[in-house]
């Protein structure tokens, strides 16, 4: 396989990470917490979508919408029950609460849904492009034939749609502008008459919707099990913080960087060490935090 094919894989991975990382970073920017339970929101969204698509047979596109709505609902209910009451205690108790909630949710899902992985029933068309000439530099083939499947195109298209929608929301609507104001300075926003609790709630709903979408896309690519989302949380977190804590646009850049690094290191590491690819992603995260702790676009996180 050529470099081109691997970069395509990376872009696809980056796409669903990006959707989730935007949600993660919105929560980080406005509620000021690292939500470690966010992976479980993805899992819940994927299961809601699966249930909608199989148990009450409705077409997959509608099931995706149901999953997004379900994700939003789950997110706001959990936030109201667990996070809003301790909002004033600072980032560390919130992080610890989300870790506890994550453990409880993950095992509750496992209890209800069982251990085995489930699959979405989808049809896939594969588009092959074998006519592309090889362009070898040393042992690395820069171009080469490649393929994409219809599922993968749907993932990338959904990601682009989400980017446009988020940009529109944050720049063109009152709620979005209020969100950005709160991310900048919560006290000033309150002085200007913004209902900060309402905005916080809408951020939770939005982040839940994005998690639901990302979860379904992830599940269509692979499968759904109790650990589907948890296996992605560290990548999402790396992408979000790499891009710049609290910045939704930074999250997009970070997600594609992480996705491409994961794909390339899987392809070019010696066989038997391909498991190191996530270690490399975290290595990049640590490096970025050391050199430019604010991420590619973001605020200062150093204390002393």
């Amino acid at each position: 396989m050529g470099l081109l094919q691997n970069i395509i894989f990376g872009v696809i991975t980056g796409s669903y990470i990006a959707i989730a990382a935007i949600g993660f970073n919105l929560i980080y920017g406005i509620v000021n917490m690292i939500n470690f339970a966010y992976g479980e929101y993805l899992t819940l969204g994927a299961f809601i979508g699966l249930f909608a698509a199989t148990a009450l047979p409705i077409p997959l596109p509608v099931a995706v919408l149901v999953a997004m709505a379900g994700g939003g609902l789950v997110s706001i209910v959990l936030a109201r029950a667990f996070f809003t009451p301790i909002n004033q205690t600072g980032p560390v108790p919130l992080l610890l609460t989300s870790i506890g909630l994550g453990i409880a949710l993950r095992n509750a899902i496992r209890l209800v849904a069982g251990r085995e992985a489930r699959y979405y029933d989808t049809e896939t068309t594969t588009f092959r492009f074998d006519a592309v000439p090889d362009l070898s530099v040393g042992s690395v083939d820069l171009l080469g034939g490649f393929f994409v499947t219809s599922k993968q195109l749907i993932v990338v298209a959904s990601a682009v749609a989400v980017f446009v929608a988020i940009y529109g929301l944050l720049t063109r609507t009152d709620v979005g502008i209020a969100m950005r104001a709160m991310g900048d300075d919560e006290s000033l926003a309150r002085v200007r008459g913004i209902d900060t609790q309402l905005i916080r709630d809408s951020v939770w709903v939005l982040a839940g919707i994005l998690a639901g979408l990302s979860g379904v896309l992830l599940a269509i690519q692979t499968n759904v099990s109790a650990t589907t989302g948890f296996s992605q949380i560290l990548q999402i977190l790396s992408a979000a913080i790499l891009g710049g804590a609290g910045s939704p646009y930074g999250a997009i850049v970070g997600a594609y960087l992480i996705g491409i690094v994961l794909a390339l290191s899987t392809a070019f590491l010696p066989s038997g060490m391909s498991g190191l690819s996530s270690a490399i992603a975290f290595g990049i995260l640590i490096l970025v935090l050391l050199v430019k702790p604010s991420g590619i676009a973001g605020a200062e996180v150093r204390e002393a």
Binding site: M33, V92, L234, L237, S238, A245, M273, I286, L289
Partner: peptide, 25 residues
């Protein structure tokens, strides 16, 4: 020197890196 929650993330990531190094080498 990192702020509390970011120190948590770095140490968590360091542990995950180490875990995958143990598995892969």
């Amino acid at each position: 020197r990192l702020r509390g929650d970011f120190l948590a993330i770095v140490t968590l990531a360091a542990a995950e890196i180490l875990h995958s190094v143990f598995v892969n080498f």
